[in-house]
Simulated scan of single mutants.
Amino acid sequence: MTTGSLARQVGVSPTTLRSWDRRYGLGPETRDEGRHRRWMPGDVAMVLDMCRLTAAGIPPAEAAKAAKARAEADGPVGPPLALSASRSGSGLPLGDVRQECRGLARAAVRLDAVAVQERLVAAVTAHGLVAAWEEILAPALQAVGRKWASAGERYVEVEHLLSWHVSATIRHVYVSAASARRMPRSAPVLLACMPGEQHTLPLEALNAALAERGVPTLMLGAAVPADVLEAAADRVGPSAVVLWAQSAATAGLALARHVAAASWGVRGARTHSRVLLTGPGWGRAAHPALLHPPGLREALAALDAPQTAHPRQSYGA
C-alpha cells in the first residue's frame, strides 16, 4: 500500500505518516527502487495502533514506542480486515471539540468498530451520559452527517457504523439504569419521533438519561404514526410527551398542538400532558402549551420544571 492510500484509509494526512516515519521510525520496512514507501500488513497494523493511542490522548512519542513494541511482539500479520473494506478519507469538519470526540471520529472513519465501541464506553464512563452526549457523541455524529451531505454516498458506511454503536451504548445505559432501580408506577414520559421521522438517537439519549434519574418512560421510537401516538398517550396518560423532528418536513405543529390539547384519565380527573418539541426541525415554532428546550440538559430540566416553564429552541444531532 502506498503512503497516500494508507493515509486515506486511516484518516490522517500523508505528511503525518511521513513525520511518524522520520521522527519515531514508525515506517514501512519495504521501499521500492525509487525509495517510495510501501506499507505491508504489519506496517499498517502498527499505524492503526499509533492512531488508536494518539486518539486516546497518549503523546506521539510514547504511542509510537508502544505501537512498535506491540508489532515486534505480534510478529507478521495478514491483511487488516478493517482497512480492506474501508473507503473513507479524512478531514471530518469537527471544529473545536474535545480530544475524545476527535478520537471517536477518527476510529469511525477507519471503520474500526472495536475502537469506536471502546471510545464510546470510555466517554460515558468518564463523563456521564449527558456530558458525553453533548460534548463527544453528538458532535461526532453531526460531523459525519455534514461530511456525508457534502460527499454524496462516500461516508454512508461511517455514519451507519457510528450510529449503530452510539445506539448500542446508549441502550446499554438505559438497560443498566432500569434494571438497577425499581421504576415508580407513575405516569411515564412518552417519547416519539414524528410521523416519517427516522432519527432516534437524541431521543434514545434522553430516554436513558431519564432512566438514570428513576423517571419512568415509554419510548416509541422512529416514525410513529399520528393515530398510534394518540392511542398510546390515551392508554398511559403520560406526564409529558416528547416529540422529535429532525427536519421541517416532519415537524407537524398541528399534531403537537392536538396532543397538548388532549386530556387523559378517568372522567372527573382528566389531565393534560406537557409537550416538548425537540429537534432542529421545529425551527422557531412556538405555542403557549408547548416547551422547546435547546439541549439534552434543558430537556431534562424542562421535564422537572413546573408547567409554566417555557424554554425555547431545539436540540440534538
Results as ranks from 00 to 15, higher is better:
residue 144 V to Y: 02
residue 252 G to R: 15
residue 149 A to S: 06
residue 137 L to Q: 11
residue 238 P to H: 06
residue 308 T to E: 12
residue 48 L to C: 09
residue 10 V to M: 04
residue 281 G to N: 09
residue 92 L to P: 00
residue 98 R to C: 05
residue 226 A to S: 12
residue 29 E to H: 08
residue 92 L to V: 11
residue 47 V to M: 03
residue 107 A to F: 12
residue 289 A to I: 00
residue 55 A to L: 02
residue 21 D to E: 14
residue 18 R to A: 01
residue 18 R to W: 12
residue 214 G to Q: 00
residue 201 L to F: 15
residue 254 A to H: 15
residue 259 V to P: 04
residue 172 H to D: 13
residue 305 A to N: 04
residue 184 P to D: 08
residue 305 A to E: 06
residue 161 L to R: 11
residue 46 M to N: 06
residue 296 L to N: 14
residue 48 L to G: 03
residue 161 L to S: 11
residue 1 M to C: 04
residue 75 G to H: 02
residue 120 L to V: 09
residue 176 S to F: 00
residue 110 R to C: 01
residue 225 P to N: 03
residue 124 V to Q: 03
residue 247 S to F: 14
residue 43 D to V: 04
residue 317 A to I: 10
residue 293 P to K: 11
residue 220 L to M: 13
residue 313 Q to D: 12
residue 142 Q to K: 05
residue 78 G to Q: 09
residue 117 Q to G: 08
residue 213 R to Y: 06
residue 158 V to K: 11
residue 73 A to P: 06
residue 154 R to L: 11
residue 100 E to V: 04
residue 134 E to V: 04
residue 36 H to T: 07
residue 142 Q to G: 09
residue 232 A to W: 05
residue 137 L to N: 05
residue 302 A to R: 04
residue 166 V to E: 10
residue 74 D to E: 12
residue 44 V to A: 10
residue 307 Q to W: 14
residue 25 G to I: 11
residue 211 A to T: 02
residue 100 E to N: 03
residue 154 R to G: 05
residue 91 G to S: 06
residue 153 E to F: 04
residue 183 M to Q: 13
residue 297 R to I: 07
residue 285 A to N: 11
residue 86 S to L: 06
residue 203 L to V: 06
residue 222 A to F: 12
residue 65 K to G: 13
residue 62 E to S: 08
residue 110 R to A: 14
residue 312 R to N: 02
residue 173 V to S: 01
residue 13 S to A: 03
residue 171 R to H: 14
residue 76 P to Y: 15
residue 299 A to M: 07
residue 203 L to W: 11
residue 73 A to Y: 15
residue 302 A to F: 01
residue 305 A to K: 05
residue 212 E to Q: 14
residue 200 T to W: 13
residue 105 A to L: 05
residue 88 S to N: 14
residue 73 A to S: 14
residue 20 W to N: 05
residue 158 V to D: 15
residue 47 V to R: 05
residue 157 E to Y: 11
residue 181 R to W: 09
residue 221 G to Q: 08
residue 50 M to T: 07
residue 118 E to L: 03
residue 189 V to D: 09
residue 74 D to W: 11
residue 60 P to N: 14
residue 135 E to H: 14
residue 107 A to G: 07
